[in-house]
Design a binder for these strands. Structure first.
Length: 735
DNA sequence: ACGGGATAGCTTTTT
DNA sequence: GCTATCCCGT
């Protein structure tokens, strides 16, 4: 395609964004305004005009899927291969840099990437080692603090200095130990992937200069969701010529909870005073009704640069707001909508069901399965978290990086081979004494006097087999290694002859992993790309959404977060209840949290091209609180009220749930319904009501939750803050 | 050393 | 309610 043809396909602001090359550029791209198009065309333009060569471009995206699509699109536009182009997520690009350079920081190139689960396991182990009571701080909390620190680029020593109270001092200790453990294991966690390159570049200016020289043009997608580390990385790599183009939408910033810093985009103009700002406000996706409604909602936020979307797609249908009695009824209504849309000629793959939390998929799934509607669930998957899969992966990790003691510990006695707690402790003591890794100690088991000959023997056998396979690791492909591991260590045999159906499922899962490895190998013609190391990197950085196939004829279920960047002709957003969406924590905390929830709602609404359905349930069973399965009484989400009446059509079906044939799924459910019903006979509470408490005074009910133990109310009092109160025991006066 | 039964803790969103 | 971990008897 010629450059002129290319540019002719863009509207004026898009064209300007593509061709502007005189300095830093900020593109504020509203939902559906062709942001991906601008990025791909810009890359194609840079190459076609020979401004830079493909290998001199660095493009950073939010998902691997986006990266792959953009790359294909660029190749299509140019009609040529762009192999050298650096395009990928921040994490994968950083991993790529580190695989080449990390030896400068004292790590080895074959480092392991720890996911959240590994992180947690490592923290738990350290806490055990330090003899710390789990009641003092929960491992989860420590993990959170460490991650937040890393996102702010605060290392363990710096954190230690700020730790004034006892608990933070303990966390600081764990943090310090955690860092040494990772170093010893030659492992990096997700946050390290972003931080280590920064460390590298600050220690080795020569390397920085090399990469700065290499990347003549830097592009960043979803700039509103970058954190401090990513921000610094981008700034660093775009120097000295500041040849940079960032694209983002502050209204779609939905990841501040994991360190994304909305000020990165809000103050881009301050960081690059001579930058050009281009707004893309024409939306090519949704109907005017959907856009207007979304605009009205998000306009309530204060943290924004501001823009107003418009489209030429016509008014379209009003937004349907449907009130249902329970999550089961809500799911039934969803099924009804799908059937109706099908009759109108909408395909299954053109519909999406979105929700705030993964747990909500369950009720929906039940109904879809029951009615035979084909569906797929994106995210929330725990495939890689299953025991048998983690075990197999741990074997593979040890083969690639024997110093990964976390992985080695996991498999040293799986399947049971007679290396128990005591022997393991002796082994560890020896390793500590000699200052060597657990793996090295294992190789010297014969020299450890404390071990019984029997244990020495078992260890010798185990390590010989590992070593034998390890010799092949770089010679043959990932699949071959894995199948050998499965066969020779008897990972499948462990479950194969069990009568337990769960064990049969484990066998299938192992087969499924081997299958995906076969596919991995098949997809890569070059043996260099088929290695085990490459596979392990892929599984740690690739997510569910990356493998999601938009053309498969099934309805898609996913969280609102996962839906970012996608679009569907028909979108259903479920669980629009105060306390669920927006989630109660954001209501109990501050206005900023609520604004983020609102942006999330905005993201959800703007996924819809033609029709948008918003559903809520008056009563919902949630696995939460002390009693794990309690029934919550809900009022509609405040977000629903924020949509002006002229854009919506409301249907109240809260009273029509009594169709006895399908009403109760089981006796047990009936009991729950009854439990929820009883309280309505006496005093009935509803979120939003104002009550007076003897000691706490006036307060507003935020949530009503009923379980075996009675009705529990979450109330925000003027002075005492948010409290949880059992209604039966408190003398509450309704106002 | 290992398997069975009791029990604690869990669910916000994810690269 | 589910599951991962703990505790105990063999």
């Amino acid at each position: 395609m010629t450059i002129d043809n290319l540019l002719a396909q863009l509207n004026p602001p898009q064209r300007e964004a593509v061709t502007y090359l005189d300095g830093p550029l900020l593109v504020l791209a509203g939902a559906g305004s062709g942001k991906t198009r601008v990025l791909t065309y810009k890359i194609a333009y840079l190459i076609a005009r020979a401004v830079v060569r493909p290998e001199e471009i660095l493009a950073l995206t939010f998902t691997n899927k986006a990266a792959n699509e953009m790359k294909h699109r660029v190749e299509q536009l140019l009609g040529m291969d762009v192999r050298g182009l650096w395009i990928g997520t921040f994490h994968s690009i950083c991993a790529r840099i580190l695989r080449r350079e990390i030896h400068h920081l004292g790590f080895q190139r074959n480092f392991t990437i720890y996911d959240a689960g590994d992180q947690l396991a490592q923290i738990e182990r350290i806490m055990q080692f330090l003899n710390l009571n789990r009641d003092l701080v929960k491992p989860r909390q420590v993990q959170y603090v460490i991650s937040q620190c890393k996102n702010k680029m605060m290392d363990a020593l710096a954190y230690e200095k700020t730790a004034t109270d006892f608990v933070s001092q303990q966390i600081a200790k764990i943090y310090l130990e955690y860092e040494t453990a990772l170093r010893r294991n030659n492992a990096l966690d997700f946050d390290d992937l972003l931080i280590k390159p920064l460390q590298l570049f600050s220690e080795r200016k020569d390397l920085l200069a090399r990469y700065q020289e290499r990347f003549k043009y830097v592009l960043v997608d979803e700039y509103q969701d970058t954190n401090k580390a990513q921000y610094h990385l981008v700034r660093l790599l775009s120097q000295p010529d500041r040849v940079i183009c960032v694209v983002g939408d502050e209204d779609q910033s939905i990841y501040t909870w994991r360190g994304a810093d909305i000020t990165n985009i809000l103050s881009f103009e301050k960081d690059f005073p001579d930058c050009r700002v281009i707004r893309l406000e024409q939306n090519y996706r949704s109907t005017q009704t959907i856009l207007d409604a979304a605009n009205e909602v998000v306009a309530r936020n204060t943290q924004r640069l501001g823009k107003t979307l418009w489209s030429e797609n016509g008014q379209g249908d009003p937004i349907e707001v449907i009130a249902t009695a329970s999550e089961i009824d809500e799911a039934r209504q969803v099924v009804g909508i799908i059937a109706k849309e099908r009759a109108r000629g909408i395909g299954y793959n053109e519909m999406a069901i979105l929700y705030r939390t993964n747990a909500q998929s369950r009720a929906l799934e039940d109904q879809l399965r029951r009615t035979g509607i084909p569906y797929t669930i994106v995210g929330g998957t725990k495939f890689y978290e299953r025991k048998e899969i983690k075990d197999l992966l741990a074997y593979l990790r040890v083969l690639v990086n024997p110093t990964d003691s976390l992985a080695l510990r996991r498999i040293i006695n799986v399947p049971a081979r007679g290396i128990g707690e005591v022997s393991l402790q002796h082994l560890q003591d020896y390793a500590d004494r000699e200052g060597i890794s657990l793996y090295q100690a294992l190789a010297q088991a014969g020299r450890i006097e404390q071990l019984t000959p029997r244990a020495q023997n078992k260890m010798h056998h185990f390590i010989s087999l590992l070593e034998e396979i390890r010799r092949e690791v770089d010679q043959v492909n990932a699949l071959e290694i894995a199948s050998r591991v499965v066969e020779q260590f008897g990972l499948r045999a462990m479950y194969e002859n069990s009568p337990d159906p769960q064990d049969q499922a484990r066998v299938e899962n192992i087969n499924e992993l081997l299958n995906s490895m076969a596919q991995f190998v098949d997809e890569r013609p070059d043996p260099v790309d088929q290695t085990l190391a490459a596979f392990l990197e892929e599984v740690s950085l690739v997510t569910d959404i990356d493998n999601w196939d938009p053309d498969s004829p099934v309805v898609t279920l996913m969280t609102l977060h996962s839906a970012k960047g996608l679009e569907f002709p028909v979108v259903m957003i479920t669980g629009l209840e105060d306390g669920l969406f927006p989630l109660s924590r954001s209501l109990e905390e501050n206005e900023e949290k609520l604004e983020e929830e609102r942006r999330l709602f905005y993201v959800g609404m703007t996924r819809a091209k033609q029709r948008l359905y918003l559903l809520w349930a008056k009563s919902r069973r949630r696995f939460w609180g002390d009693d794990f399965a309690s029934q919550f009484q809900n009022v509609p989400s405040r977000f629903l009220r924020e949509i002006p009446a002229r854009f919506k059509q409301e249907r109240d079906l809260t009273g029509v749930s009594e169709s006895p044939a399908t009403r109760f799924v089981s006796l047990e459910d009936a009991a729950w319904e009854e439990a929820a019903g009883t309280q309505e006979e006496g005093q009935s509470y509803q979120p939003g009501q104002v009550v007076v408490h003897d000691t706490f005074g006036r307060g507003e009910i935020l949530a009503v939750e009923s379980s075996r133990h009675g009705t529990k109310l979450t109330i925000r009092f003027g002075r005492a803050g948010v409290k949880k109160i059992v209604a039966e025991y408190a003398n509450l006066e309704l106002l």
